[in-house]
Simulated assay, not measured.
Amino acid sequence: MARNANWVPDDVDPGLASAARLCDYLLGGGHNFATDRALAEELLLVQPNARTIARLNRAFLRRAVLHLLDHGIRQFLDLGSGIPTVGNVHEVAHRAAPDARVVYVDFEDVAVAHSRMTLEHVDRATIVQEDVTEPDAVLAAAHRTGLLDLAEPVGVLAVGVFHFVPPERDPVGVLATYRDAVAPGSALALSQFTSDLQPVEMAGVVEVMKKSMNPVFPRTRAEITALFEGFEVVPPGVVPLPLWRPEAEIAGRDDPERAGILAGVGHKR
């Protein structure tokens, strides 16, 4: 991509790959740099299923949003929302419930800049630029938008983001702060890279992502389940992406053992 493209903030360093832009490339998007594409190709060498995993994670996001809408939730806080692609939360939510409100949260400059462009003429959806591991700052910024009312149930979406949170940042504690802030009836939808599926390939992913601005920290099923502390996890529990309430028969290319990510949804009672 050209350095002077109108979606590139002036202070962005195109020489350091980011997870948001890498994922954009894997999903077929155009808001990425040569460094992102080069690192994505390295990723595909160690995890040939990376594009499928990205697609499966996006599909889980859609199913989770629809599930939360079915449970009466009409406002969403999308943590680590990344670069907008087809099937954004507000697109999924507004088709089913035009009154739904969405606050996206990301820290990466390109993700935020492009989200602002995408959302410029969209009602009931906006983005705030904050670090998701600073929940008090995130919640304050989201409240200032006028779209998030913590007195009402909130769908907290942490889809494909907490594997970028190192253990020393206390991911369980961070999510507990979000949980304690939202009203009963709220819910958490979460997906995260796991070392329980394809451990050799996941070790390769960890090494490749060390070259980016977003190292990866895969977790075991037990560690991922612990992220739902204080939420009642709904069936089928914390499972590989394709197994979370699939809408159709699972295709061979969507083999759960190669999904790379575990996912689940929990409700706050």
Rank of each mutant, 00 (worst) to 15 (best):
A100R: 09
T225C: 07
I53K: 11
A251G: 13
D123H: 14
R124Q: 13
M213L: 15
S81V: 07
H121S: 13
V216A: 13
T194E: 01
D170Y: 12
A111R: 03
V208W: 02
A97W: 04
V103A: 02
D255R: 13
F164D: 01
R253D: 08
T145V: 05
Q75K: 11
G160I: 04
E249W: 04
A100G: 09
G252P: 02
S115I: 07
E42C: 08
I224R: 13
R144V: 03
I224W: 07
G260N: 08
G146Q: 13
V205C: 10
V8R: 14
D36N: 00
V216E: 05
V110S: 01
L175Y: 03
R62F: 00
A248E: 09
E247N: 13
D123S: 14
H31N: 12
T85V: 14
V234W: 07
P9V: 08
E207A: 15
A222C: 04
D196G: 08
G204P: 09
G72D: 01
G173T: 02
D70P: 03
E42A: 09
A38K: 15
P171G: 03
A34M: 10
R101S: 05
H267Y: 15
I127V: 15
V138E: 04
T145H: 14
R51I: 09
H94C: 10
Q75W: 07
T126E: 09
F162K: 05
L262H: 06
G266A: 11
V128H: 07
A141K: 15
V161H: 06
V102L: 12
V12I: 08
E108W: 07
T145N: 08
D10F: 00
P153V: 00
M1I: 00
R116F: 01
A17G: 04
L119R: 14
V265C: 03
A54V: 05
V89W: 15
H67E: 11
E41R: 15
L26T: 06
P218E: 01
A20T: 05
L39H: 07
P48G: 08
V138G: 04
V65C: 08
V132F: 15
P171M: 02
P167K: 05
V138P: 12
V200W: 12
S18R: 14
R37I: 01
S191C: 08
T126W: 11
A176Y: 00
S212E: 03
D70R: 14
L150S: 05
P135Q: 03
A203N: 06
C23A: 08
G72Y: 10
I83T: 06
P242S: 01
D149P: 06
L175T: 02
N32V: 07
L77K: 14
G29E: 06
R253Q: 13
A189M: 08
A226S: 13
R55H: 09
L150N: 05
G173V: 04
V154T: 09
N6Y: 15
G28N: 11
L188N: 12
L43W: 12
V132R: 04
I127E: 05
L43Q: 03
V156R: 06
D70M: 04
L148E: 00
A96K: 15
N88V: 02
N32M: 11
T145G: 02
P84Q: 00
H267V: 11
D36E: 00
P167C: 00
M202A: 03
P215Q: 01
V92L: 12
H90T: 02
A187G: 08
M117T: 02
H31W: 12
F33P: 07
G160R: 12
R253H: 13
N49L: 04
R116V: 01
